[in-house]
């Protein structure tokens, strides 16, 4: 049976930043693929990982859990994880889970890049 997952993930290094740009939905099926790309970002040892969610239409808690796991790795590695570009629907789940204050969140990728 096909797994039905349609997530595509962009991965780019810009100076000290690694930018991970998922595109599509991040649900139960896609969380594993997303986690693989986030792990790759951590393995790069870049001091700052930016996850650009501008092209993510929908996310549920398995997707959020991969980001929580990634945040824990960042804290352990003393690196930064910045989320940006969330639409209202995606941001709502962070609010419901009260994670909107736990993550460093920027409105856009430009804002995330401009962060000191």
């Amino acid at each position: 049976m096909p797994d039905g997952q349609t997530l595509q993930v962009g991965f780019e290094t810009q100076g000290q930043n690694v930018i991970v740009s998922p595109q599509g939905e991040i649900g139960y099926s896609e969380a594993t693929v997303f986690r693989t790309w986030l792990r790759k970002a951590h393995d790069s040892k870049s001091p700052r990982i930016i996850v650009d969610l501008a092209k993510v239409d929908y996310m549920n808690t398995p997707g959020v859990a991969t980001l929580v796991e990634s945040l824990q790795i960042s804290k352990r590695n003393k690196t930064r994880l910045i989320l940006c570009g969330m639409n209202e629907k995606v941001f709502a789940i962070f609010k419901i889970a009260r994670l909107d204050t736990v993550f460093e969140i920027c409105p856009t990728l430009t804002d995330a890049n401009a962060k000191p």
Binding site: N60, T61, V64, A65, T66, V68, E69, L71, Q72, I93, I96, A97, L99, V102
Partner: peptide
Amino acid sequence: DVKPGGLGVHV
């Protein structure tokens, strides 16, 4: 307790 998992029922 910020950790992965256990969020679905809360939502």
